[in-house]
Every structure is written in structure tokens, then in C-alpha cells.
């Protein structure tokens, strides 16, 4: 019974992730670039990553160190994406030789 539940969870997630991908493509094609789009795209990236890590990889119940490292990746990269949009000029100055 619970096996079916997990199977159902990943089935629904698959559909959701595909829908989010198509929605993201539509947004990328139609919306004018800006902070709002950057935040939405970054949040979607974070959410999709977290779902794959927790449910497809089954790390939600697995080894804590691996789970934390993988989850952290999908906090850091989306956050940096927004920060670079906001403070790109500062990063450019910091990384100019």
C-alpha cells in the first residue's frame, strides 16, 4: 500500500516537473526580463532540485550528510543567481584583475 503511495508520489511529481519546465519555457519566451522573472526562475530551479533530491533520489529519509550537501546546492545556486542579477557590477569589480 505504502509502495503504491511512493510510486504515486513520484508519478505526480514527474507531471508537475514537466509542467513547470513548460511553464518556465513559456515565461522565458514571453516575459520581459527583470528581477521578478529572475526570482521566479530561481525559485522554480530550487523547487525542482529539491523534489528530485528528496523523492527521486530518496534522500529525504537517507544519510543526513549527503542529504544536507545536496539540498544546500539547491539553496546556494538559486540564491547566487538572484544575487548576481542584483549585484553583478560588484561581482565584476571583485573579480577584475
Amino acid at each position: 500500500m505504502k509502495a503504491m503511495t511512493h510510486k504515486r508520489t513520484i508519478g505526480l511529481l514527474w507531471l508537475l516537473l514537466v509542467a513547470l519546465t513548460l511553464g518556465g519555457a513559456f515565461l522565458g519566451e514571453t516575459a520581459a526580463p527583470g528581477l521578478a522573472v529572475t526570482v521566479i526562475v530561481s525559485l522554480t530551479m530550487a523547487f525542482k532540485g529539491r523534489m528530485v533530491i528528496d523523492h527521486f533520489m530518496e534522500l529525504k529519509t537517507a544519510n543526513r550528510t549527503i542529504r544536507s550537501l545536496m539540498r544546500a546546492y539547491f539553496y546556494v545556486v538559486p540564491l547566487v543567481t538572484v544575487l548576481v542579477y542584483l549585484f553583478g557590477d560588484r561581482l565584476a569589480r571583485l573579480t577584475t584583475l
Binding site: K2, A3, H6, M57, L59, K60, T61, A62, N63, I66
Partner: peptide, 11 residues
């Protein structure tokens, strides 16, 4: 009863 990753296990 769950055929998912054991608690604390490494996939």
C-alpha cells in the same frame, strides 16, 4: 513495509 530508502541509509 516501505520499498524506499532505509532511514539514514546511503542510496
Amino acid at each position: 513495509t516501505l520499498p524506499i530508502q532505509a532511514e539514514g541509509g546511503i542510496p
